[in-house]
Computed example of a mutant assay.
Amino acid sequence: MQPWDYSIRPARPEDLDAARAVMLDTVYRDFGTGYVPRWHGDVIDPAAAYLTPARHTLLVAVEPADEDVVATAALDALGPAHPPNPREVAERFPSGTTAQLRRVYVRPEHRRRGLARRLVAELLAFAEADGGYRSVYLHTDPSVPGAEGFWRSLGKVVRDEREDAGGGQGIIHFEIPMGR
């Protein structure tokens, strides 16, 4: 199946259970952390996090044959908080003017088909159309297979916590250029 065979659209209320399943499966399988309320509250209530606020969005990729949600990607206007993120990262990407990419997750059997790249392109177009965002930020866990290389292909590293004394959280912080 080619990436253009999938439908990408803003999530509808009827998509939320399936989108939540993609997200929870990812945090359990790929991150190994499972659900952590302080990190994953948006996963439990994606409608409040992404559908209700006007400047936020949740996208889903849907397989055409059976309309299954196989990938998610979200954007909100909340910059990274300090703590747990480094102070200079939080100051560089303030809430309100920062579009933070979140929950770019693809089910394993649908990976390597360009879905994440298409989803991110749609999120960037959403951020540009908003007109109020000045930067696009995300962080990733480099232990997730393929994550670091994917994000390095799209943006620039602004902080790699693995280089900090003690390794910080081991997270890599990225800025993605707008207007790609």
Results as ranks from 00 to 15, higher is better:
A18F: 01
R117T: 10
E63G: 00
Y28S: 06
G149E: 05
L115Q: 12
R9D: 08
P84R: 08
A11G: 14
F93L: 04
R180Y: 02
K156N: 08
A125F: 00
R38N: 00
Y137H: 09
F93P: 07
N85T: 05
V157H: 13
D25L: 08
R117H: 02
R152C: 07
D17F: 09
I176E: 13
E63Y: 14
D141R: 15
A127P: 04
P83Q: 06
A90D: 11
R29D: 08
R152S: 05
A71E: 05
F174N: 06
P37I: 00
L115K: 14
Q100L: 11
D76E: 03
S135P: 03
V106P: 06
V104S: 04
E67V: 10
A121C: 00
V120P: 04
D15T: 13
V106L: 10
V70P: 12
Y133P: 03
A129L: 10
T140A: 06
R107K: 14
D30L: 01
A49G: 10
L58R: 01
Y133V: 04
Y35C: 00
S95N: 07
G149W: 04
G41D: 05
R134V: 00
A116N: 11
Y137I: 01
E148M: 11
A54F: 03
G168K: 15
R159V: 00
V158S: 13
R12P: 04
E122L: 07
A99S: 05
L138C: 13
L154D: 10
R55V: 02
D76W: 04
I44V: 12
G114M: 11
W151I: 06
R117Q: 09
A73G: 14
R20Y: 10
G170W: 12
A54E: 06
L115V: 07
R107C: 07
R111P: 05
P80N: 01
D141C: 04
Y35M: 04
A11E: 05
T98I: 13
A19N: 01
D160C: 04
Q2V: 04
T98R: 05
A74S: 10
M23L: 14
L123M: 09
T57A: 03
K156L: 08
G96S: 14
A125M: 01
V70N: 12
Y133I: 02
F150A: 11
L75E: 05
A81Y: 02
